[in-house]
Write a protein that binds this DNA or RNA. Structure first.
Lengths: 187, 187
DNA sequence: ACAAACCTCACGATTATCATGTGAGGAATG
DNA sequence: CATTCCTCACATGATAATCGTGAGGTTTGT
């Protein structure tokens, strides 16, 4: 389990054993069952999560109580309600398990301490933040430039393994179409 | 919805309109979906819950990851991880929805304020606490004096409506027997 | 030592829930 | 006016959950 995190980090930066022990000490491991929530709307967001195994959905529920999927998080993915986490305000999103899931939890204090005491970790988190930022922009661009069918096809290409694990109704909520429309687009 | 709380409280104490408005201002309403958790083991317990509609189970999970049902909470029921709530420590129990559920949430500060500013509410909460305490003792007595079959029969008499809404495997976990044994006791 | 009570594992049947595809009417948009 | 998509409804199939039962084993009380 430590190995997973170390491999993940060392894709980007190098760490000595001592440095990694320090990094590891800021994380706690937690297991959740399918349907359980890591984050609930209206609650404080204490952690930034790294997925060891399992699958999560980050959900925005609108005033009509309709669920929209902001993102999915599978293994090797970082997820949280980032706005609420960094500003220490209440969550506007919820993070729910689609499968039994095991995560590493990093608190804001832990995060800051890692950045203060290990400058290499700043580079690591920067890379992750940039990755997320770029992914968001590309998603916006695809929303602006592609039809629903094209966006679905793009998703199929980019995340074939995700498609296997997620009900089509959730994929539809992620793509911003109804599940009936997605069914029709798939033909 | 206010009406439900008012009726519930006025079974025990009288409140003027002004007093009730004050009481009501300390509650917030929340809706949860089936499978969602109000309390998760290891988390802070911020609220004492009053069930407006729906059904909850209060669960203790042992070291072998086996679930035991401490209690169920249906309409007109108060529930929480009381120890964790009053001591503001981390939950050792979890509170999960068996149905879509709507609750009123009362924080510890709100609870204290109600008691400080409205002595009648002390009497109300005392009555509730006594009720819960007595129910726990009767349960202990039934554990000490009755066979499993007899405890099941007693539950059938006391909570016929609950029995309809809860899977037998959960009733078994509440009674402290296996679901196979409960099946056999039912014959 | 033995009977009773219960657990656990396994299996099979049934029921409930979930997922999915499709039809049809309607709204919004270009 | 055509196209795209939504919503509601229905039907079907797959999956998950529930439940009863058999059998072997353990624990407990007498």
């Amino acid at each position: 389990m430590q190995e997973i995190l170390r491999k993940h980090i060392e894709k980007i930066i190098s760490l000595t054993d001592e440095e990694f022990t320090f990094v590891w000490s800021h994380f706690t491991v937690k297991k959740y069952k399918k349907h359980q929530f890591l984050i609930q709307e209206g609650e404080a967001v204490k952690y930034h999560y790294f997925v060891l195994s399992g699958l999560l959905k980050l959900v925005y529920t609108d005033e009509a109580a309709k669920e929209h999927i902001v993102s999915f998080a599978m293994e090797d993915w970082w997820e949280s309600d980032f706005y609420a986490f960094y500003t220490q305000t209440k969550a506007t999103l919820s993070l729910e398990c689609l499968e039994d899931t095991e995560v590493l939890c990093l608190s804001l204090d832990g995060y800051k301490k890692l950045c203060d005491d290990l400058p290499e970790m700043v580079r690591f988190f920067l890379e992750k933040a940039n990755f997320g930022f770029i992914a968001s922009q590309r998603r916006i661009i695809s929303w602006l430039t592609l039809s629903s069918r094209e966006r679905y096809e793009q998703l199929l290409k980019q995340s074939p393994s995700l498609i296997q694990r997620v009900p089509k109704s959730l994929l539809a909520a992620y793509l911003g179409v109804s599940r009936e429309t997605l069914s029709r687009l798939s033909s």
